[in-house]
Design a protein around this nucleic acid. Structure first.
Lengths: 241, 241
DNA sequence: CGACTGCTTGATGTTGCTCAACGTGCGTGG
DNA sequence: CCACGCACGTTGAGCAACATCAAGCAGTCG
């Protein structure tokens, strides 16, 4: 994570931050459907912000009139429940956030926190709304994105409610390996507590299961440095729940 | 339920079934934004179908090229998981179904079953797509509907993962009273098994909790005839989990 | 060095699932 | 018409999975 801050990517982001939207290489599928005039409207109604790991990007229950587009980085979407904190999902760039809160009502129904250096564009919601009205291509791309999200949410619901703890932790590890890092070796971007919040279990249970996996040579784990040793078995555990 | 079949509503539905879309009183918010030409396109690309309680409206894993609009009635959306059946949500008319499956890929990711007499319009997905491209008002209404759904899903996730069984059953009872029937007395439209699938617990646990509630005079329950006696307490149980 | 945070490990109690038994109502087929 | 299987519902006993409580350890920061 420290390396990242000084990497070539960081330099590119610097350049991008000073660049007009029309030349930005981090355009979403929806934005690619906009014409030059629309892009220039966008230009005048957005703010580019950089967040460090741990920074709060969106705060639950706050009033807000923006749509957030995650250009680069990794974030957790979490909700403060009546009993404990819950991480709803972890998602990497590029993606839109706050779309549901937005069109539903004017308050954020969840918080979003950066897990690593993250670059975000905030757009005025009314500009967004205008584009939906005027540009069918744009609207369709947004609907596509929301559809994919809904299907993912469905899967999550099923997984969380039917699997037992060991299966959920296996899920989480596989999620980071396959969906986030595309590698069986990575540095866990979250603490044990957060892993527990993600899996919906207690910190102690999460810890225990990780050491079990380590002892049974399913994973190698030094602090947050994780390597999957027996992926086949991990997949079976995830399957069987 | 039996009364319903022969009620005045039933007669209205009969009339509606023979009526052109332009005169149908069950138009969705999105459809109300369509012009006469568009309505007539709709007319030529849809099928009106009536389902009885227990009938399968949409079958999981089947290929499908339709969007379903629930005009009237009550349905359950359920998924066959690796371990057991799960009811994702119960929803009453009016609502769209299959939107997410649709734009994501071509197979249904869940089943939908009628819990009472239900009337459904099936539309060709391409017609729908065309409307999104050509009619911004229509697109925006669809996005609004999807946003509300996503917020509901979020809430569900939190509830399911943090509450214990007693809280989930309390939730389910309050859901039927407040969201479906708007009355503290109603006939439970589902079996104990289905209630368990909805709460994500076993049939035995659901049964036990219901008799506990009955014994503690929180509810009165004769078969499926349910009356809430102590709503305050039920709300507390739901809150505390 | 002491306070503090994040993590791990063990002991204990509770929750809820599984299994089993039994009653009921319904539809089917002999 | 009765016998039978089958889905549904209820209840009890035992057990596994988890949360909770408690203690201790390593690393870090002031």
């Amino acid at each position: 994570m420290i390396f990242c801050t000084f990497s070539i990517y960081s330099i590119i982001f610097e350049l991008m931050n000073d660049m007009p939207c029309s030349l930005c290489i981090y355009k979403s599928a929806a934005e690619q459907k906009l014409n030059a005039d629309e892009i220039s409207i966008l230009e005048n109604n957005h703010a580019k912000v950089r967040f460090k790991a741990g920074d709060i990007i969106v705060k639950q229950d706050c009033l807000s009139a923006n749509v957030a587009y995650i250009k680069s980085g990794l974030v957790k979407v979490h909700v403060r429940g009546s009993i404990r904190e819950r991480i709803v999902k972890i998602t990497k760039a590029p993606t839109y956030l706050c779309l549901p809160s937005f069109f539903g009502d004017k308050t954020n129904h969840f918080s979003v926190t950066a897990l690593e250096e993250t670059h975000v564009c905030f757009f005025d919601v009314n500009v967004f709304k205008d584009f939906i009205y005027s540009n069918g291509d744009f609207a369709f791309q947004i609907i596509l994105e929301m559809s994919k999200n809904e299907l993912l949410n469905f899967e999550n619901c099923i997984n969380n409610s039917q699997k037992q703890n060991i299966g959920r932790i296996a899920d989480a590890i596989l999620f980071f390996a396959d969906k986030i890092y595309n590698s069986d070796t990575f540095i866990l971007p979250i603490s044990r507590q957060e892993l527990a919040d993600l899996a919906g279990i207690t910190r102690e249970s999460a810890s225990r299961i990780l050491t079990d996996f380590h002892n049974e040579k399913i994973i190698d784990l030094q602090n947050r440095q994780l390597t999957i040793l027996n992926k086949q078995l991990l997949l079976e555990i995830s399957e069987k729940g």
